[in-house]
Design a protein around this nucleic acid. Structure first.
Length: 881
DNA sequence: GATGTCTGCCC
DNA sequence: ATTCTGC
DNA sequence: GCAGAATGGGCAGACATC
């Protein structure tokens, strides 16, 4: 909400705002209304400036979000002006913002964390530090209120030198590509920036803090100690991007998850101490996101554009960069070494250091820029960032960030852990028990403020609270602003499930056998549901009558399925149902034959379908869970309660809305029920079964928690599913941790008639690390100079290297499908040019007992395709898929 | 305007 | 989606 | 068992290019 206010479009270009004013506002008011406003708006306009299209032919800046509310556009000058808004919200009263600073050792490092007396003394100190902090915060507040009434929008006249380019350099790194030389294995971590293990923020890995459940935490520095390190960050100053990069480098160099979280925690704490306003920026950058998922912000940047940008930034031909990338396996490192070379030349002046918020801001601009020539524009933007990157590591993380994967062993879940630790330890609010309330507190809320508990347990409670909050309101803006104004024990009240904002969906874990399923159910009552082959859809209705549909990854798919909320509303038993969140699978459906239609057909739906009538592909809803009903969250109810409420308040509608077919049972060692029901499901064109406990451990646990549901598919079972024997005919260089080996192979079946090998899939999973190494080595003995004329492969699948047909691999797949890229049984499919490909292929083993010409034949592939239960209506097979 | 390439998102 | 791996 | 990082087929949509 904080950010929302700060970035209101009407303030977007008005110069620096004063965060203090908003703080005061927020300290008194409830966040709820603001978050609701966010939900309602859920538009980019609340986060980014809008820029109406400029003149014809120029790049226009627009939003791509598909959120509910219409966005009012606001013309606002040209691109250049927009850039300057980057440096908004500069903080001037630096001393005042040194909120937290205590000379006391906040937490004692101890080897005897289980020793009660030590814990007590730890906690005493903690309490003392917290009360001091509280005092300071109080002082802060009054100061802020005094000073927040005027001068809100001064213009910060400083020019950013974003547009600086580097056309003065012509150096190329033209080293020839060493084809498949021995490369370093592992994460691709380079040694240049790797710090000594455990130096900066954490010391003494031998002293750990233990929680009740036995989790250990590294020992913890006090705020004062923390602040005195990394001295380059001035109090109140905006954070330099290099500070983040330093932590990222540290994290990249280590593998211990606890240590990774610790480094990040230290960084978050430092941010809280030095400049809390940057925390949200930091959280976004660390988790490598740009906006909440449901806002549907796409960077629109991929390897191709990045290669171009890196090339241009240091004056090399993109094809050279591309080759470097193939050898190096990491575009970030390529950019980094390019940068290093560039700098040793010593041309030009040192540009201004990049600020963290500038980097995020550019990312966002890139994301919101569309239209003709926008790619060129994006390349220029990226170039601008690369030129300004100070430390070589900065270019590395800029590039990797834009690639969408930091690849340092740190992702969203760890960010949430570190964020909660940091807030607990150094947040502006005390986490002790002083906040009285009438609400019933959760166990975690009680624990986090229970000073009698040891630190580890309190930290663990903090993590639970933060993760729960985020899973119900998956927006860092909402989360961070709430964390800064309410204690952890009250977080859930602010960040709680409501229709209009997606909940992280519950996920299922694959199981390899029916025995495994039974073992996990051990005597409990459970239900099996058909697992439909469609698209997950979370359907929302709020009390204003507004509806949304969200995808599995929380994107707003309301426009893709406009009829879905209508069907669900129709399915409500009466008008008393005024709000709900329903978990469903949307499946393509043929109303004439009353049969399900394969996923491949469903996926031809437009991203925006105008109406039910206009949509070529009709759908049916298969509902299986209810998370919210009539103003009340059902997340903590058991599945059997939720399901009962669902069936009581909704009814099936022919061809539009059904409940997932289910069978209830109690585990008693009998496998027959499951086997038989699985068979029924597969015959009914389903992928398999979902197995869920009904009463015990049966609350709705969003994705982060655990994969508490089980999924059972035929192809998981040994000896079942489609298993084929294929020939590796080519390979692609591996990236990241697969640098140095082939990351994927191209596999072919054998056509006896034409004696050619036809590609049916690439394969990149199922290999152990040893497999990858061994296969690379052995196949390198059978390299060919170029593609064999015997290989029928689409040019779009061009391999980096080609092999003689010399091996046969057993491969498992879930399905076979008509393919425009693969050539299996091409010319026998009834559609010219189209072959058959495999769905979800994975490597099982090498078949040393088979010669390549004994591989699965294209005729067999064709038979398998037609034998599928999903091809009930041959019409699909011969026409349309 | 047709075609090709790239990207993101479904699974 | 599937799968593997270090913690 | 979690979290992270490798990798799959195939579709629509957005741009770039011819």
């Amino acid at each position: 909400a904080f950010l929302y206010l700060r970035n209101r479009p009407d303030r977007q270009s008005s110069g620096p705002s004063r965060p203090m004013a908003f703080k005061r506002h927020l300290l008194t008011g409830s966040l709820l209304s603001n978050i609701n406003a966010m939900a309602k708006q859920a538009t980019l306009s609340s986060f980014f400036g809008k820029n109406a299209a400029a003149k014809k032919g120029e790049v226009k800046i627009s939003t791509r979000e598909k959120a509910t509310a219409p966005t009012e556009t606001k013309a606002k000058g040209n691109l250049k002006n927009d850039d300057d808004s980057v440096n908004r919200s500069k903080i001037t009263e630096s001393e005042d913002l040194d909120l937290i600073d205590t000379d006391d050792e906040v937490i004692v490092r101890t080897n005897a964390a289980d020793d009660d007396s030590t814990i007590k003394s730890n906690n005493k100190k903690l309490a003392k530090a917290e009360s001091e902090r509280q005092n300071r915060v109080e002082k802060q507040r009054s100061k802020l209120e005094d000073s927040s009434d005027d001068g809100d929008f001064e213009i910060d006249g400083k020019e950013k030198d974003f547009e600086e380019t580097s056309d003065d350099e012509d150096e190329e790194f033209n080293e020839p590509l060493q084809t498949l030389k021995k490369r370093k294995r592992g994460t691709g971590t380079t040694t240049e920036t790797a710090p000594k293990k455990m130096t900066s923020s954490y010391t003494a890995s031998d002293s750990k803090v233990k929680s009740k459940s036995g989790k250990t935490f590294a020992s913890i520095l006090s705020d004062a100690e923390l602040a005195s390190e990394k001295g380059s960050w001035k109090d109140g100053a905006p954070m330099n991007y290099s500070i983040l990069c330093k932590t990222l480098s540290e994290v990249e160099a280590i593998t211990s998850r606890l240590d990774i979280a610790s480094y990040l925690t230290s960084l978050f704490r430092l941010c809280l101490i030095k400049n809390p306003d940057d925390l949200i920026t930091l959280v976004y950058l660390a988790s490598n996101a740009v906006a909440p998922a449901y806002q549907c912000v796409e960077l629109g940047i991929g390897d191709a554009i990045l290669i171009k940008a890196v090339g241009e930034a240091n004056g090399s031909n993109p094809s050279i960069i591309k080759k470097k990338y193939e050898v190096d396996g990491d575009l970030g490192t390529v950019a980094m070494t390019a940068k290093a070379k560039q700098r040793t030349l010593g041309f030009g002046m040192k540009p201004k250091p990049l600020l963290a918020k500038e980097v995020l801001s550019v990312f966002r601009k890139i994301a919101t820029t569309t239209g003709s020539k926008s790619q060129k524009w994006k390349v220029d933007k990226i170039k601008g960032l690369l030129v300004r990157a100070q430390d070589v590591a900065e270019s590395k993380y800029i590039i990797r960030g834009l690639q969408g994967k930091l690849r340092i062993g740190l992702a969203q879940s760890t960010v949430l852990i570190s964020l909660s630790h940091a807030i607990f330890l150094s947040g502006p609010l005390t986490q002790s028990t002083k906040h009285e309330t009438n609400d019933v507190l959760s166990e975690d809320a009680k624990n986090v403020s229970n000073e009698k508990l040891n630190l580890g347990s309190r930290l663990e409670a903090a993590v639970n609270i933060v993760k729960k909050a985020y899973s119900e309101v998956p927006s860092f803006d909402a989360l961070v602003s709430a964390l800064l104004i309410v204690p952890l024990s009250h977080l859930h009240k602010e960040c709680t499930l409501r229709p209009g904002l997606p909940v992280e969906p519950m996920l299922a874990k694959p199981t390899k056998s029916i025995q495994e399923v039974l073992k996990r159910l051990s005597g409990k009552r459970f239900t099996c549901e058909f697992k439909y082959d469609g698209e997950r859809a979370q359907v929302h209705l709020n009390r204003n009558g507004e509806t949304n549909v969200f995808s599995r990854s929380l994107l707003d798919t309301s426009q893709k399925f406009p009829e879905v909320p209508l069907y669900v509303k129709e399915a409500c038993v009466d008008s008393k149902v005024d709000s709900f969140v329903l978990d469903t699978e949307v499946v393509a459906y043929n109303r004439e034959t009353q049969q399900f239609v394969p996923f491949q057909i469903l996926s031809t739906r437009k991203k925006t379908e105008e109406s039910e009538e206009n949509a070529k592909v009709k759908v049916i809803i298969q509902a299986f869970d209810l998370m919210y009903l009539n103003g009340e969250s059902l997340l903590d109810r058991t599945l059997s309660e939720r399901r009962e409420l669902m069936k009581k308040n909704f009814k099936a509608i022919d061809g539009k809305f059904q409940f997932a077919t289910a069978l209830d049972a109690t585990e008693n060692g009998d496998t027959a029920i499951l086997e038989e029901f699985l068979d029924t499901a597969v015959k009914g064109q389903c992928e398999g079964l979902m197995v869920k406990t009904l009463d015990e451990n049966a609350s709705y646990q969003p994705s982060y928690r655990s994969l508490n549901w089980l999924k059972l598919k035929k192809d998981y079972l040994e000896g079942l599913g489609d298993s084929v024997d294929l020939v590796p005919i080519g390979a692609y260089y591996g990236k990241g941790k697969r640098t140095g080996v082939y990351g994927a192979y191209l596999l072919a079946c054998y056509d006896e008639d034409t004696e050619e090998y036809q590609s049916v899939c690439k394969i990149g999973t199922g290999f152990s690390d040893d497999d990858l190494k061994a296969l690379s080595e052995s196949l390198n003995n059978n390299r060919m100079i170029e593609k064999s004329t015997q290989y029928n492969v689409s040019p779009t699948l061009d391999c980096n290297v080609w092999f003689e047909a010399c091996q046969v691999w057993e491969v498992k797949a879930a399905d076979l499908s008509k393919s425009s890229t693969h050539k299996g049984a091409v010319d026998k499919t009834g559609e010219s040019g189209r072959g058959i490909g495999l769905r979800f292929p994975r490597f099982e083993r090498v078949r040393n007992d088979k010669r390549p010409d004994q591989a699965t034949t294209s005729d067999q592939i064709l038979d398998m395709f037609y034998a599928q239960d999903s091809i009930v209506d041959k019409g699909y097979a011969d026409d349309g898929i």
